[in-house]
Nucleic acid binder design. Structure first.
Lengths: 181, 181
DNA sequence: TGACATGTAAAACGATCGCTTTACATCAAC
DNA sequence: GTTGATGTAAAGCGATCGTTTTACATGTCA
């Protein structure tokens, strides 16, 4: 049980640093010191490990979103991502990167990515509703786009992308309130 | 000369569909009917081909941006991307995907990605200046984030991401004009 | 006509890939 | 005190990888 989590954690780091397909199982396992035997006992295959890494990542990220700051539920999204970023090598959204490399060959990975993005966008919608007093799917998607854009450019431009996106989200929210008071 | 372009075009399609590292040279070449000999004569290595595909993509994209619609230079960005999307399998920005898979092992690929993004953001800044009458780096980055976000989510959500991003960009531009008339 | 660049076809290189297997060590639980 | 789950170490599997090589067919241009 402990090794299983260690392998996942090591693989997460390895995939962040080297990409999903640019690294072999030996190198992945070197991060946790586990043997190949243990990997295949727990995950069945390399692709199975990728799936579990994404699921683990999803749960960890969603746990961070559990608490909602009632004063600024939308802006808080970008602060959370900022904190997350400080603890990880950043190379864009791990789910979208996995999607790009596995969509053509592994349906389960694709499904995990879709699930994650859908749940995340649902969470954004929930926060928009709290901030506005009523649902607003358009604004929610706008904020989703800002979030994804900031995450995508994070590794090239640094944390300023998140600050800029947070400002833009606030501006768009204010524009909504003015036109629909 | 003709085969060289054919190989690049085929590789571009292959990378879009299967990811950068999820496909071997044989499959890449099957798209253009060329032999491995020809590939290595022209590009030296598989990585060399990746570099040339990205450079070709960069030039093609920048060529589309050459003409600027003077009535709506910023909104036109999203229309151009929309048209581009219709002709290609979309799986997120090809440059950022390449960056994710090669950043750790190939400096030349990383450099090409940086160059592309910098030139693209310069172009956005140019268009913002036309629209506003004066430069505005903040607004330019906001629009850049919307563009990247829309591109990243395109394969999951479809072209509506580009329409939403275009609307948001227009809103943010208007907000700027009101607060700095 | 001859030289040269450009191309294909196909076999083979060593390296690495994902994965399996054999053999053995802990260690907690009933 | 035996059992069963969990682990390591290490050799080896066939397949595939990127790459090189040999042999031969074009078409172009001096």
């Amino acid at each position: 049980m402990k090794k299983q989590q260690a392998i996942i954690g090591g693989a997460e780091r390895a995939f962040e640093a080297e990409g999903f397909r640019g690294i072999g199982v030996d190198k992945i396992l070197a991060q946790s010191g586990a043997s190949t035997r243990t990997l295949y006992k727990h995950f069945g295959s390399r692709d199975g490990l990728v799936v579990e890494v994404l699921k683990h990542r999803h749960l960890a990220f969603m746990a961070l979103l559990r608490e909602t700051d009632p004063s600024d539920p939308v802006g808080q999204l970008f602060d959370i991502q900022r904190r997350w970023t400080d603890d990880h090598i950043n190379s864009g959204c791990m789910f979208l990167r996995a999607h790009g490399e596995y969509a053509a060959v592994n349906a389960e990975i694709t499904a995990v990515v879709h699930d994650h993005k859908q749940q995340f966008e649902t969470e954004i919608g929930r926060r928009v509703e709290i901030a506005l007093g009523s649902p607003d799917a358009d604004l929610a998607m706008q904020i989703s786009l800002l979030f994804e854009g900031a995450t995508a450019l994070l590794s090239l431009r640094g944390p300023i992308t998140l600050e800029t996106a947070k400002e833009a989200a606030a501006l768009l929210g204010r524009a909504r309130l003015e036109h629909r008071p």
